[in-house]
């Protein structure tokens, strides 16, 4: 795991949910709040911060270059200011922000966030899918959030991979039992559905990432067969 600390800026309803879901992924999770009163909270390790450029206190306690920041301040203007402040100081820091609307999400992206979750649109998408495509929604939900045995994995093509330098159209995926390859992400970060016209003629290169769905055992077998491993690298994420 490249990021060893999670820094959550803002203490509100989202904080608890984020902490619950990411605490096992990081060696430390620190919450920063603008309100000094929150530091009295005994449940979480909460520290005070302000929106000045002075990040010395934080730098002393965590390795900021190997961290991921979640900006979830409730005030949109403050949240944007926080993202700009962090990005101007730390060029390589991975920043994930939560925005109320798409309009604010665009501003946060412009401010330098790597990924923004627009709350209203995301919730509306989920509700619409629940109503209109209940089965596919449930299946994708279970796969994505690992509620069933099915898993979705990213597999990076390594130097020694057997399928390197082969055209996608020539690979017989049915040869790899139990897994379904959904898409391929090229080195230039563009992602293509495996059967799309563009991807069809694509020659698999080193560092391409395949997105596959399958059971754990089958994914492992697939990794072994093609000679590649699961992989996450947040440094790639710069929209």
């Amino acid at each position: 795991m490249p990021n060893n600390s999670a820094l959550i800026f803002g203490y509100n309803n989202y904080t608890k949910e984020i902490v619950k879901n990411v605490k096992n992924e990081y060696s430390s999770v620190t919450i920063y709040s603008l309100d000094e009163k929150d530091m009295e909270n005994e449940e979480y390790n909460i520290e005070h911060f302000d929106l000045s450029e002075d990040w010395d206190n934080i730098e002393q306690s965590v390795d900021i270059d190997n961290s991921i920041a979640f900006c979830i301040l409730e005030d949109t203007a403050e949240n944007i200011f926080l993202v700009i402040s962090l990005r101007s100081t730390y060029k390589d820091l991975t920043i994930i922000a939560v925005a109320s609307h798409k309009e604010n999400a665009n501003k946060l992206l412009m401010a330098g966030a790597n990924k923004v979750i627009p709350l209203v649109e995301t919730t509306a998408d989920i509700i619409t899918n629940m109503l209109e495509s209940p089965i596919s929604n449930q299946v994708l939900h279970d796969i994505l959030y690992e509620k069933s045995d099915l898993k979705i994995a990213q597999i990076k093509i390594g130097k020694e991979s057997h399928i390197k330098d082969e055209e996608i159209v020539n690979i017989d995926w049915s040869h790899y039992n139990g897994i379904i390859v959904l898409s391929v992400m090229h080195k230039d970060m563009s992602s293509e559905f495996i059967y799309s016209s563009k991807a069809k003629r694509h020659v698999i290169e080193e560092d391409d990432v395949l997105v596959v769905v399958g059971f754990e055992e089958d994914i492992k077998a697939f990794e072994n067969k093609i000679g590649s491993k699961r992989y996450v690298n947040w440094s790639h994420w710069s929209w």
Partner: peptide, 18 residues
């Protein structure tokens, strides 16, 4: 919605491409 955000962040940090 808060729960959704929690789940999404987990997935985002673990498997961003997926």
């Amino acid at each position: 919605p808060q729960e959704l955000i929690g789940l999404i962040t987990k997935e985002l940090v673990g498997k961003p491409v997926a």
